[in-house]
């Protein structure tokens, strides 16, 4: 439990991570700055997933639909209706949150593996819908959002989201916002009740907690974070396609979170970074790189069965949130 964590150390750590990432914008080589921009956005996706999986204990195999809801919710209005970036971003988050509310309302009738399968199937439906409306979505081929539409305009200010430094900073702002909100939630009574539901749902019910409402709130929050990540991905990188709604993108956040450490605030970032770089590095020097990726995953989990940060917390740093 995180309740007794020394606040000072926790806040210092998170502040240091955000500051460190800020500094990286100015020192990273160009390619790696681009990588970090993408990873930071995707880490927000993973953190959103972690709210539900790590803290609430609900394993979803359908989070691609929330990411894709954000992606399409933001991308389609820009592409078809020439919306500007800010309202499109909000539209993306709203799409994800509304979808999460509806899905949560249905899927939370189930628990455990049934929840996993229900979310998987609803996500499959969402994926098929993006194909069914290929006329508007261009299906798996997807849409390119024109560069000149990807500008943040406020009064006289005109910021091109394609500028590498600005893009990095926006990704960092998104990441930091989700991180801080997550940290805040984890330390709040609401977050503690989520963890308590994960540990013993029956007891919480007997104690008079409305378990369903708490879980529904977690689903919506999680969906909104993932959608924010998807919306940012569409607007920052300019591509919207059905692939992001496929099962692969439901499994990836699970993998990222498990690698970094479920129910840790910073684990999702570590997992996402690890997965990116192991693929990026190994594929650069051998065609059969998936062999190494697979072996690395197995070795990593043998030595860190609770994920990198999860195992570190267990062994050395119990104060980690």
């Amino acid at each position: 439990m995180t309740g007794r964590a020394p606040s000072g150390r926790v806040f210092a750590l998170h502040a240091a991570v955000i500051l460190g990432l800020l500094i990286l914008n100015f020192v990273l080589p160009e390619y790696h700055r681009g990588v970090f921009s993408r990873v930071l956005v995707l880490a927000a996706f993973a953190m959103g997933y972690n709210i539900l999986f790590g803290y609430t204990g609900l394993l979803s195999l359908g989070h691609a639909m929330f990411f894709a809801a954000g992606l399409y919710g933001a991308g389609l209005p820009v592409y078809h209706l020439d919306w500007s970036v800010a309202p499109a971003f909000i539209a993306g988050i709203v799409s994800g949150a509304v979808l999460a509310l509806a899905i949560g309302f249905l899927a939370l009738r189930t628990t455990g593996v049934a929840f996993m399968i229900v979310t998987l199937m609803f996500a499959q439906v969402f994926y098929l819908i993006t194909l069914f409306f290929t006329t508007y979505t261009r299906g798996e081929e997807g849409l390119v959002i024109r560069q000149d539409l990807r500008h943040l305009r406020m009064g006289d200010l005109d910021l091109a989201l394609t500028d590498p430094s600005l893009r990095y900073l926006i990704a960092l702002v998104l990441f930091s916002a989700v991180l801080i909100v997550t940290l805040f939630i984890v330390r709040s009574p609401f977050g503690r009740s989520l963890v308590a539901i994960r540990e013993n749902e029956e007891r919480m019910r007997m104690l008079g907690y409305n378990v369903f409402t708490n879980k529904l709130a977690a689903v919506v929050l999680s969906g909104a974070f993932c959608a924010a990540s998807g919306a940012a991905y569409a607007l920052l990188f300019g591509y919207v396609g059905s692939g992001f709604a496929s099962i692969q993108y439901s499994i990836l956040p699970l993998l990222w979170v498990l690698l970094g450490g479920a129910a840790t605030t910073l684990g999702p970032l570590i997992g996402t970074l690890f997965m990116f770089y192991i693929v990026d590095f190994t594929s650069g020097f051998m065609p059969a790189y998936l062999l190494v990726v697979g072996a690395a995953l197995i070795l990593l989990i043998l030595f860190f069965p609770k994920g990198i940060l999860g195992s570190i917390r267990e062994r050395w740093a119990p104060w980690l949130p």
Partner: peptide
């Protein structure tokens, strides 16, 4: 595409077949 341009510093990028990869890479 970003890796080619920023790390390998190649002169140009070439060779993609599948449409979704082309479309996804075009913005970069």
């Amino acid at each position: 595409v970003e890796k080619f341009a920023n790390q390998h510093k190649v002169d140009l990028v070439y060779g993609t077949l599948f449409s979704h990869v082309v479309t996804g890479s075009a913005p970069a």
